[in-house]
Design a binder for these strands. Structure first.
Lengths: 248, 248
DNA sequence: ATGACGATTATGTATATACATATTGAAACG
DNA sequence: CGTTTCAATATGTATATACATAATCGTCAT
C-alpha cells in the first residue's frame, strides 16, 4: 500500500477522493437530505470522516461554493444555499415552485377534464401515430387571488393508464406525472401570442394582450407521455434558463 | 514581511495571487494574445514567473481547465482551447441559420454603434460590478425584405477588447463573438411583451403587437462577455428546444 | 526500418504545515 | 448596562514535499 491513497473505487469507477467528497455532498443537497440553510459538517469533521487532509476537503468545499451550492462563512461554517433561480429548464415549469418563490400562496383549480379517444389534433400534438385513449385537462394556476397561468394538457393514457383514475381537481397534473413517470426526453416550443377571448377570460386580462406560450411534449423511453401548453400573461412571467456548453 | 505572501495589489484591489494568475491568463486568452491552440507556459515556468509554488499555479490552471478555457495534456502542457460549438439551445439563436432554413435570403444591418463607459444599467445587464468600456450595438436581421428580428447588444470591452476595432456594419456581432470567445456559461431570459413604438417601427409591425423577447447573458470563465436582446414579432417565431434530463 | 522498452517530463492528487482573516462569544472594563 | 477587547474558531491562501499517471522521446535490439 502506497503512502498516498490517490484513488478510490465507487460503483466500479475509479475516482479521486476529492471527486468523491464533491459528489457525496452534492447528492445530499440535491436530494434534499440537507435542506437550504442546513450547516454542513465542518472541514475538520469531514477530514475525520473521509480520513484525509483538510486541504482535500477544503478544495471540494471551495468548489461547491464556487458552483453556488453552498455558502461559506468564517467562524460559522458552510451552509446549503437557498435554491437559486438557476433551476433547470424543466423545473421552471413547476409552477407551484415559481409562485411560492414569489412569496404568494399557490392554488390549482381544474376547469375541465375529459377522457376521450384521441382526435387527429390530439395525435398531432402528442406525436402519436395510432389512435388511443387520452385525457384532456384544462386548469388554472393561481398566485394568491390572481390567475398566474392557464394549463391545457393532454395525457396519453396508453402510456400512463393510472392517470385515468385521477380527478386532478386541485392537484396539478404536472407534479403528479413527474412523480410517476420517468421522462427521457422533452421538447419545448416557446412563443408569444395575443390572448384570444377564451384565454383573456380565463386569465382575467385584456383581449389581445401579449402572452407567453410554453408548450412541452414529453417522452418516456420514446413513448409520448404528455403534451402541455402553458399560457402566461406577459407581465407575470419570464423564463430563465442557464446553460453550459456541451463538449466540443 | 511575513513568510506567507498572501495578497497582492492590482488596480487598488486586494486580490490573492491565485486570482491574479487566473485573471492574467484569462485576459491573454480573451484578448486573443494567446490564440486557440497556443501552448501556455508550463507550470514550472509560471511558478518562476510569479515566484510562487507549483500548487498555486496548478490550482489556477485546473480552474481554467474546468471553466473550459484551456485544455491540459500530460507531458505536453496546457493549451488554449478552440471556441466550442454551441449547444443546441443556442444554435436556435444563430439567426442566419434560422432565416436560411426558411429558404429566405439573410441580411444583417447595423442601426447603431456606440462605444461608451458602462452606465449603471449596462452593468446591471452584463452583471458587471466595476465600470469599464462597453460597446452598445443595435441592428436588424432581415429575412428577404422583411425585418425578422431586432438585436440590442452590449459587449464588455474589458473582456473582448478586439471588438472595439470592429464596425459590425453588416456582420452580426453574434457569429463574430462565437468565433473568438469561448463561452463557459449562458443565461437566457425569455418573455413576451407588446411592441413599443421603437420596436414596432424597426420591425415594421403594429404598435402593441405581441413580441417574443429573448435575452442572453454570456460568461467566459466567469467573466461577463455580452448581453443581447432579440425581439421577434410573435408570428414569425417559435423557439424550439429539446432536453434530456441532466444527471442528478 | 521498426518495434519494444525505459527514461523523462508535465500534469494530477494528496499530504503536513504555516500563517492570514473574519466572526463570534465571552470576559474585562468604564 | 453598554462597550471594548481579546481569545477561540472556521475558513482562506500559500508553502514544500511526495508519489501517481499519462504521454512522448530516444535508445537499442531485432
Amino acid at each position: 500500500m502506497s503512502l498516498v491513497e490517490t484513488v478510490d473505487i465507487e460503483g466500479g469507477e475509479i475516482i479521486s477522493l476529492h471527486q468523491r467528497i464533491l459528489s457525496d455532498i452534492r447528492e445530499k443537497i440535491l436530494s434534499g437530505a440537507w435542506a437550504p440553510g442546513h450547516r454542513i459538517p465542518f472541514e475538520h469533521e469531514l477530514t475525520a470522516h473521509y480520513n484525509c487532509s483538510r486541504m482535500t476537503v477544503n478544495k471540494a468545499l471551495s468548489q461547491l461554493a464556487k458552483a453556488g451550492l453552498i455558502e461559506r462563512r468564517r467562524r460559522s461554517g458552510s451552509f446549503v444555499r437557498q435554491p437559486q433561480s438557476q433551476a433547470a429548464v424543466l423545473e421552471l415549469h413547476d409552477i407551484r415552485i415559481e409562485v411560492e418563490a414569489l412569496g404568494l400562496p399557490y392554488r390549482y383549480e381544474r376547469l375541465e377534464r375529459l377522457r376521450r379517444r384521441s382526435s387527429a389534433e390530439d395525435r398531432a400534438l402528442l406525436g402519436l401515430s395510432a389512435p388511443g385513449p387520452v385525457l384532456a385537462l384544462e386548469g388554472l394556476h393561481f398566485a394568491g387571488e390572481r390567475p398566474f397561468a392557464l394549463e391545457q394538457r393532454l395525457i396519453n393514457l396508453s402510456a400512463v393508464a393510472k392517470a385515468a383514475e385521477e380527478e386532478f381537481l386541485d392537484i396539478a397534473p404536472g407534479p403528479w406525472l413527474i412523480g410517476r413517470v420517468p421522462w427521457s426526453e422533452a421538447e419545448h416550443r416557446i412563443r408569444a401570442m395575443a390572448a384570444d377571448d377564451t384565454i383573456a377570460d380565463a386569465l382575467d386580462i385584456d383581449a389581445s394582450a401579449p402572452c407567453l406560450v410554453v408548450e412541452r411534449r414529453t417522452w418516456s423511453a420514446e413513448h409520448p407521455v404528455t403534451h402541455v401548453r402553458f399560457v402566461y400573461p406577459a407581465e407575470s412571467h419570464t423564463l430563465v434558463a442557464r446553460f453550459t456548453p456541451s463538449q466540443g
